[in-house]
Design a protein around this nucleic acid. Structure first.
Length: 583
RNA sequence: GCGCCCGUAGCUCAGUUGGAUAGAGCGUGCGGCUACGAACCGCAAGGUCGGAGGUUCGAAUCCUUCCGGGCGCGCCA
């Protein structure tokens, strides 16, 4: 409907430009300055445009006069009942009732496709999100990234993009070594409780569990522990843990250490995969960081950087000249000791993604990684990819509270609330909707006690309840043997109530909401829309009966709520929330 | 110290890319179930859009500055 108005104005402007009726305005200006919005106040009509205000200055005429000219040039159609000028020069449109009502049948025949758009014209998008290190189970902070990323993937698909989502698995590096060490020590403690635990190790109970599995697999084979393992440790916890990792590798040897390492890594990746799947999050790909090293991709990317002249050596290390691309300082890719940095694999990963034939790359990062964005984009450009092909989106942190008390979320300390706990506590639907209700760049206060106590007040139930009520009406129709929608085609002109028109107009917004959410990468718009839609329905439901109305009117009303049901389902699907027929 | 994000009703948050009288939910007060599910509906109170300047027909939205909060600034990942 909105598009219809836009094209009306657009063609009017084009013909005016051709006739030279408005000075200083060219055909190119039209697209940029043309905006149509829903009128906020019904007294203004249904849609409003401010083109006249925008163009007036350039055209050297008064906005209201220009509006007059534009209106005169707009072609007459059956859809538009009235066009008027208001305020400083807004052009207001009123759509005919019949035109609104015709939407009901359109929704019912489009069914699950209603709201889907071709806006993205099949562009290929690679969306990476969560990508948490497999050093522990996902916590509620990761849950936010998961809910956002997955909803974004769904919204983009609805917007006509072809989206693959991917999880980058950090299955290498120091943190993972520390995890392996932690597992080993827990394994030793099973037999000998006197064995100490490492400072700065992973303290969560899940490590003990993994150690148990390790025991099942290797038996006592890894028990060659000597009592001086913990001797002469440096004061500093980080240095100490690094030394212990070294000793662990020496004690076990390369092959056995790898078995140990994989035991921890595989268990946690599998745990994360399951957790996310249960949360409704499916990935098309899981990309291994380690593979970049073993298959030479990392070395190749660094070689490309060197060929392009963006690498230099200093103090024995290889540096990427990130400052040439706007970063604050240059960044090390290869350390003086010959090992690569995390950044080296990450730039190789983005190089790889850039080569895979996608039109657009999206990364969703936690806000704690914002310092990282510049160097990633810098390296991406230095490797020869167009910088605006890659967008890095930030999801702000969820700050956790238990009541008034702030809860830290350290994976190492083992003191965190897992996503799984949250899901068990409030359910997947409530958790998904709760996350979906905030835009990503909003800091989020997540009070766990409140989340639990309010689980019944979660707006998700409000939306689901509207759906269940509609289904219930249809069940009743069936029970009482009343004629249903299959019996005849409804006469929608019988719908004359204020709430009925309001509901149809809300239904009409859905495609606009989907497009807007996809364009601005903000799936939360869908969540807010669904609440509005549910409210429009509940208000209608309370004001007017279905069963007791006259046969033809009832049929028309059933058609309207059937369309409503369809849009609720389509919308909830975008958030991976279920639409139960009974609650 | 430097950089990124945020500040809107008592609380939690929206605000259609600069539009008309700033909106929801929760909470508070009042009212509403005898063909449909009260997990609902209706009405009301509640605001210096953190403060101050600026840009223009027009600012919660853009710019400057200050205040307050979150997060980052390693040859860690």
């Amino acid at each position: 409907m909105k598009q219809r108005i836009e094209s009306l104005i657009s063609s009017a402007l084009h013909s005016l430009v051709e006739q030279d009726a408005i000075p200083n305005i060219s055909a190119e200006d039209i697209g940029a300055s043309l905006h149509v919005e829903r009128a906020r106040d019904a007294a203004h009509g249904d849609f409003a445009s401010n083109v006249a205000l925008v163009l007036a200055k350039r055209a050297k005429s008064k906005p209201r006069d220009l509006a007059e000219t534009i209106i005169a040039a707009i072609a007459k159609t059956d859809d538009v009942e009235e066009i008027s000028i208001a305020g400083p020069g807004f052009i207001n449109f009123r759509i005919t009732r019949l035109s609104w009502l015709s939407l009901i049948e359109q929704i019912r025949s489009d069914a699950e496709v209603y709201g889907m758009s071709k806006m993205g014209s099949g562009q290929k998008v690679l969306l990476e999100f969560v990508s948490a290190n497999p050093t522990g189970p996902l916590h509620v902070g990761h849950g936010r990234g998961a809910a956002y990323g997955d909803a974004l993937a769904r919204v983009l698909r609805a917007g006509g993009y072809q989206v693959d989502s991917e999880y980058y698995v950090n299955d290498a590096g120091r943190q993972m070594d520390i995890l392996a060490l932690s597992v080993w020590l827990r394994y030793l403690q099973q037999e000998n409780p006197a064995v100490e635990f490492t400072p700065n190790g992973y303290q969560g109970d899940y490590v003990v569990e993994i150690a148990g599995k390790l025991k099942e697999k290797v038996g006592d084979q890894f028990r060659n522990y000597s009592d001086d393992f913990f001797s002469d440790l440096p004061e500093d916890g980080d240095a100490a843990v690094d030394l212990l990792v070294e000793r662990c590798k020496q004690t076990l040897g390369v092959a056995d250490f790898k078995i140990l390492f994989d035991q921890g890594c595989d268990a946690l990746v599998e745990d994360i995969r399951q957790d996310l799947a249960e949360f409704g999050v499916e990935y098309q790909g899981w990309f291994s960081e380690r593979s970049l090293v073993t298959n030479g991709a990392m070395e190749k990317s660094i070689a490309v950087l060197e060929q392009n002249g963006h690498v230099y050596e200093k103090e024995g290390a290889k540096w990427f000249r990130a400052t040439d691309f706007g970063d604050e300082k240059d960044r090390v890719v290869m350390r003086a000791n010959g090992s690569h940095t995390y950044f080296a694999t990450d730039l190789a990963y983005h190089f790889d993604k850039g080569e895979r034939g996608y039109d657009r790359l999206l990364d969703v990062f936690g806000a704690d990684h914002h310092g990282y964005i510049k160097r990633i984009k810098a390296s991406f450009e230095a490797l020869g990819h167009p910088p605006d092909k890659l967008d890095i989106l930030l999801v702000q942190f969820a700050i956790l509270y238990r009541g008034k008390e702030k809860v830290s979320m350290s994976t190492r300390g083992g003191d965190f609330v897992t996503l799984r706990e949250l899901r068990d506590e409030v359910g997947n639907d409530a958790a998904r909707f709760f996350y979906a209700l905030r835009k990503p760049d909003q800091h989020m206060d997540f009070d766990l006690d409140l989340a639990k106590s309010q689980s019944l007040e979660n707006p998700v139930y409000y939306v689901q309840y509207a759906h269940a009520r509609i289904c219930s009406v249809f069940r009743k129709i069936e029970e009482k043997g009343m004629p249903g929608l299959q019996s005849a085609s409804p006469d929608y002109t019988l719908l004359v109530e204020e709430q009925e028109l309001g509901l149809v107009q809300t239904l009409a917004r859905f495609p606009e909401v989907v497009e807007s959410a996809a364009r601005s990468l903000e799936p939360h718009q869908v969540a807010y829309y669904l609440r509005d839609l549910a409210a429009a329905f509940q208000s209608y439901y309370n004001a007017h009966p279905f069963l007791s109305s006259e046969d033809n009117l009832r049929l028309a009303r059933l058609g309207l709520i059937d369309a409503t049901r369809q849009v609720i389902v389509n919308g909830l699907n975008l958030l991976a929330v279920s639409a139960p027929e009974q609650m």
